[in-house]
Design a protein around this nucleic acid. Structure first.
Lengths: 207, 207, 207, 207
DNA sequence: GATGAATGAGTTTTCATTCAT
DNA sequence: TATGAATGAAAACTCATTCAT
């Protein structure tokens, strides 16, 4: 509206875009090589600029990882919260959560790999305290869901819930390490297959 | 010949012991913090010596990782080969392989974590070519086993074998990240539970 | 000639004003933090602009220091030269010089601090040769004055003139580090007190 | 006594010596060029080693400044405290404090210059909080002494004590900027001359 | 006049490694 | 066997400066 408004908007939008672009590049390399093993220069090279120039956009290497992870987790929890709010049965909820997780892997594969591989060390620094919080919420969500499912008869009565929680959590997220968007299997198909294996196992049905 | 012969022998044994001890310390820190994020000084500190002193025992940081990984893989394959040589049915073989894997996790947890997290990057260097070989053998073993199981009717006919291979591989090895020797569940018990989940899933049996 | 002539004039005046304003800001920060420890960005922030924008006004960081110092020294010497031209007795001249110095501190405190702290290093570069010239003139002026005062009986006969020169010089200029314009004591009052201490010391008069 | 005792001692002594030596070199360059304008490489060059090697001895550039300043201040206060404990009259105490200050300048000239030029900025960081404490104690000591002297009739009744405190403080410490150990005037002689100027001024005695 | 994005040279710092003792 | 002191290469980061818009 104001004559300067469009400028301000386009500028701020452009900056946001550039940041996102650079973070995408960084996330890819962090995921591929590991955070500690990646140098700022490698990221800058991939972005077509000099190492120092990255510091115009970001405070530090750590703040890049921070932004990658927090952005990813925010989006992830939005999708999880939507599912939980739907208040479906245990089985359907589990199904939706797993599908959402594979959708997240599809959309943010490098961020997932980074989270998977580095969150343990990063969480030691106060700046990354939210990683621990997220982990707790995650555990509570799954354990709660599994316990409800056992009560409701959706899951086996003799399920070791804490163990099953880890089983599912690991199994799903580690898939980010090999999942290739655009490969033989789409995220949806992998999700469906994994769901079947998790629910019914790999043995033939006795029925 | 030398009057110190007996001494020399005992020294050499002691040296072997010391190496193993140091490698155990190194593996623990590598696993905890990541290989690239761990400094030689941290390892030396934990061993109660100065950084330079480690070089009396080892050529380089890389050679420590090398020795940790190759020792672990050698042992692992010995146990796998024994199982494969027994020529049991697909289901029993899978059962034994998973049990052996958890036994390995129990005995070499840091090495497993190191393998899990770093083998991808390390394998790029020729020195670690054996990592790739092991990975291939591993995949062939599992894919072969699963295909045989499908043929024999031990596993579901509609199993996506490559996917199931990854499912099992990831699920088992990632457990090293949280498994605590001496915790609530022994390696054997975790193996049994995981086996049930892998074979039958988490749903109640329709039977 | 040009139809924008009047504009151009007012613009040029405005430019001069803006320069002076920016130099004032820069001088303040240089004085507070030290020249080397101050970044162009800090100056720009304080001026409400971006670092690059300062380069529209000034060639370089060095040229800012240059302009701050040369402006200050030019004014200072004008006031000194007026005093020297009056050809008064040694005591009265000293009195006037000290008063003028405190007036300069009052008017150009940051410039004085900058001169005090940085002239030694800056003077190494040819661009700042005038700092050395000023220093020499300064010394000659004071040593000459003190020697004359000793000859005329205005100052103690046993005065170590080079030492007294430094004593006075340091004592006066270093006051810039704590003098606060608008504080308890005006520049005039500080000058008077300092003059008394320099002339008569802090002991009571035996008279 | 113990066979390893001599080794341990000589080692630790050697390290202390080396540290002190390096700190002396660093202090000299810091004083000459300013702390911020001095690079670690310059210090290392002067010490005949590579920049990185300095980090075997010191954590950071800042910690070098820290150690230089704290060592100096500790020694300075030891000498001041000895004087204050003697409980002499105001004039004699002032005399002794000024002499002690010039002795400190003689022994630790670079540290004094560093303190003089950089303590204001450094004191902003919590690590250098002791600089502010020292400054307060310093002011209290001098103000107390001057007030006592005025009461006892040792100093002029109309003395502006806070101003006189600054006058003396600055006058003495700034001398570190030009004082050359081994020059025309020894520290003792400078102290004596300064003391005369401070007590009696530069005018001839009316007596 | 000012911005936003970059450069490039330099800074502090890190760290695997070496080596005389 | 281990220490203490260093090396040297590379890391993260800084900052004065440039320039198209």
């Amino acid at each position: 509206m104001s004559p300067r408004r469009r400028d301000a908007d386009s500028t701020s939008t452009a900056r946001t875009h550039r940041r996102a672009e650079l973070l995408g590049i960084a996330a890819g390399i962090f995921a591929e090589q590991g955070y500690a093993a990646t140098t700022i220069r490698e990221v800058a090279d991939a972005a077509g600029m000099l190492a120092g120039s990255l510091y115009y956009h970001f405070d530090s290497k750590e703040s890049m990882a921070d932004e990658i992870l927090s952005t990813f987790l925010t989006e992830l929890w939005e999708s999880y919260d939507r599912i939980l709010a739907a208040n479906k049965g245990a089985r359907e909820t589990l199904e939706a959560l797993i599908a959402a997780s594979f959708t997240a892997i599809d959309a943010h594969r490098p961020a997932v790999v980074l989270y998977q591989n580095e969150s343990k060390h990063l969480a030691l620094s106060p700046r990354f305290a939210y990683l621990n919080e997220s982990r707790s919420r995650f555990r509570d969500m799954w354990v709660g869901l599994l316990e409800r499912g056992v009560r409701e008869g959706a899951f086996r009565a003799d399920l070791d819930v804490p163990l099953a929680y880890r089983f599912i959590r690991d199994t799903v997220w580690v898939a980010a390490n090999w999942y290739a968007p655009g490969g033989r299997l789409s995220a949806d198909m992998v999700a469906k297959q994994y769901l079947t294996m998790i629910l019914e196992g790999i043995q033939p049905h006795p029925s």
